[in-house]
Design a protein around this nucleic acid. Structure first.
Lengths: 186, 186
DNA sequence: TTTGTTTTGGGACGATCGTTCAGGTAGTTT
DNA sequence: AAACTACCTGAACGATCGTCCCAAAACAAA
């Protein structure tokens, strides 16, 4: 029985987490294409061999990054819904604001998420992680209209990906009518 | 005045087109990450230096491929709409079928399109080409309900990208109610 | 302290990358 | 015919890649 965690492993886990964070920053800046052992190591401020020690391959590193990223996104969506509900709102305002933020200040992060999304399309083992935020939403919403809900989820994804190729990010005001239409019960 | 085209340039243009087609096949198979001068050259059955001769850089090759791909997609969408109209249909059936095809037999092509889509998010010069198929749709449809149309376009993109991370591609039957809901006037 | 385990990091290997270059070929113009 | 232009291609360069190896360091267990 060990009551205290192994100090070495603790530091190891910490560095592992730092490498994942650095990887996400690299993807935000240069895309998945910019991810190499060396760029990630430089970004994290660790020697190159550190990334190969903690991750058996570059693929493993990307997989771990996607899983971490998907988990963050899922909890974020969770709290957004929770916040919207506590206000008694139907959510259009919150969703439009979140989309505008994702396409504006957090644009790099959004691009990173969709690049990892597409990575999941090619690597089956990543799909459960990529679907997690969809699952979180699905589990939180009442299921009285399955079709309308699927339309809503698809619409969000579509608005995000189309917003990424706009010359300038759409504002929350521009997005609100579209989101409102998406949420409108009928 | 030259009545006949230069035979050398004709062959050059032909080879250039073959290289672009080979590039698209490589992207379908291995993703944008798999595109190198050598893999493309091998796929096209030409020497490596041929790709560097016809395209000043790898970036140029990807740009040309996206533009070609976007043009194909735009004309395809054009004819689909035309076909649906000639049948007097509202289009739900046609759209659902097209989506199922894009996510089934043509799954690799669809992944390639979205990878190039995301490339356009990082390279502003690609955005006009990436937006073309949206523009084609926009120009063909009546503008009596702008918001509903934007929702429709976003929904299509969302359904496609979500269908790419499904373990097995959705059938046209599964997609039809969602598409129908998207197209339903209200 | 001694022994064993885990992390760290410098160095290097072979492979592959984008790109260049120079010579060769084919087609056009004069 | 000669001169010119455009395309083709084998060879090679330097850079960078993923990954491996091994010794040092840090820490735990004995």
């Amino acid at each position: 029985m060990k009551l205290q965690a192994d100090g070495r492993k603790v530091r190891g886990e910490k560095r592992r987490a730092e490498i994942i964070e650095a990887t996400l920053r690299v993807i935000e800046r240069d895309g998945v294409a910019g991810v190499t052992h060396r760029t990630v190591a430089t970004e994290a401020g660790v020697p190159t061999t550190s990334t190969t020690y903690h991750f058996s391959s570059l693929d493993d590193l990307l997989v771990a990054t996607l899983i971490s990223c998907a988990r963050d996104m899922a909890t974020e969506v969770y709290w957004m819904i929770d916040r919207a509900r506590s206000r008694g709102s139907r959510g259009a305002e919150e969703v439009a604001g979140l989309l505008a933020e994702a396409l504006g200040p957090r644009r790099g992060r959004t691009m990173a998420e969709y690049e990892l999304y597409l990575l999941a399309a090619r690597k089956p083992e990543l799909r459960p992680a990529a679907r997690r935020w969809l699952d979180v939403l699905t589990s939180m919403v009442r299921h009285d209209d399955e079709v309308a809900f699927r339309v809503f989820l698809a619409g969000i994804d579509g608005l995000l990906i189309q917003g990424l190729i706009d010359d300038e990010p759409p504002s929350a005001d521009e997005l609100r009518p579209v989101v409102d239409y998406l949420l409108k019960p009928r």
